[in-house]
Simulated scan of single mutants.
Amino acid sequence: MIAIAAVLALLCPLFTRMLCPELKLVRPNFQKKPIPAATGLSFLLPLACYPPLWPAIAFGVLGLADDLWGDRSVGGFKGHLKSLFSGKPTTGSLKLFGGGLIALGYAWFLFPGKWLQVFVAASVIALSANTLNLLDLRPGRAFFGFGLLLLPALALTPLTFTELWPLLIVLTIEWWSDARASAMLGDTGSNLLGALAGVLLVQSLPLMGQTVLLVVLLALNLVSERLSISAMIEKTRWLKWLDQKLGAR
């Protein structure tokens, strides 16, 4: 059984690279080289084996809709809300409201009747997904953000991750491809990984820890509405140095 799971985990990235051209999900990267642009699809099958993590799959599906049909001329919370209220809804607004409902439903499942904790947990999941989406503009950034978000959960519940080793195989393969700029996660992958981190965090952290994390994520998302994260990284010496170590530049 273990051998079968390992083989399937290894085949997921290969199958994804065959599927992306069929779905017309090949895009030029920041170096103008055409590469598979939705390798987050690789995570769907491994995650399907773990029902407690299924909300991340739902976020990945919403991201896939954005990869397939999204309008890149509209961005940010303001842009998608403005389009929605002007009668021209975008896939971004679908992610905004659909992801919010998924996060609220899952938070209610975890903390039934505890309205404050439901609100905080749902916000952490939704903002974690959007944060990784914001970071996924250069190779390696989204995976680095994913690792940072997971640190508290790893510290509190390390045994949980030993059960996820097929997913860890896929993560390693896709991290290597992403860092080398030979494949892109797409919104499929960045939304999925962000939601996955959020789900694991709300399962692990107490309410106070979730609240602190929520404040940090909310601040980052609000800043990104006015300032470019890439521009901020370029203007900050130590951030630029760190960013250059994450992948191809």
Rank of each mutant, 00 (worst) to 15 (best):
L68Q: 00
G79L: 06
I125R: 02
E22T: 15
L220F: 09
L151M: 15
L127P: 11
L207W: 13
V74C: 04
G105F: 11
T188R: 07
P28Y: 12
V212G: 01
L149D: 04
V215Y: 06
K88P: 00
L44G: 05
T236F: 09
F144D: 03
W115A: 14
G147R: 08
L156F: 10
T160Q: 09
L127G: 01
F85R: 10
R141C: 08
P21C: 09
M184C: 08
L192R: 02
A56H: 08
R138L: 08
T172S: 14
D243Q: 01
G186S: 11
V223I: 15
L205W: 02
A126P: 07
T211R: 03
A153P: 04
L151W: 13
A155R: 12
G76P: 10
I125E: 05
P112V: 11
L213C: 07
K235N: 12
P139V: 01
R226E: 10
I169G: 06
P28K: 14
K235A: 15
M1Q: 10
N130H: 10
A129H: 04
L44M: 09
L201M: 08
V26W: 01
L110C: 14
D71S: 00
V202Q: 07
T162S: 10
I229N: 10
M18P: 09
F119V: 15
D243G: 11
G147Y: 09
A153C: 01
W165S: 02
A48N: 05
S73W: 08
L149G: 02
G63W: 06
W115M: 12
